[in-house]
């Protein structure tokens, strides 16, 4: 699966979030990849799950891709919980 990490410019918090997602993917042994992008191109990018902050989550919600909000971009616990919720909902 593909996890899209989104922030305003695509090279700050989204990259930080991508690093955290990659740690969680490795820890859980998931067959998944992470990509960072900016809010402008996020809605046109194919993905299975979008992770971002609260504000962009509310902007991106309602599309075809499930969206989860993360408060701390470096928190493996938060990211793991978001991925688990997504996997459970499938």
């Amino acid at each position: 699966m593909k996890i899209l990490c989104v922030c305003g410019m695509g090279f700050g918090s989204s990259l930080m979030l991508k690093m955290t997602v990659e740690k969680v993917i490795q820890k859980k042994g998931l067959n998944a990849e992470a990509e960072a992008t900016d809010i402008g191109t996020a809605s046109g990018t194919q993905a299975d799950l979008i992770l971002t902050n609260n504000e962009f989550a509310s902007q991106l919600e309602g599309g075809s891709v499930p969206v989860k909000a993360v408060m701390n971009m470096a928190s493996e616990d938060e990211v793991e919980k978001a991925i688990d919720e997504y996997l459970d909902s499938k």
């Binding site: 305003g8 700050g12 918090s13 504000e55 408060m71 701390n72 470096a74």
Partner: peptide, 18 residues
Amino acid sequence: NLGPYILIAPNVALPHAR
């Protein structure tokens, strides 16, 4: 332009540009 979304954790902001 993009909004005040530079928080990377509660209470922590990351101002940056290209």
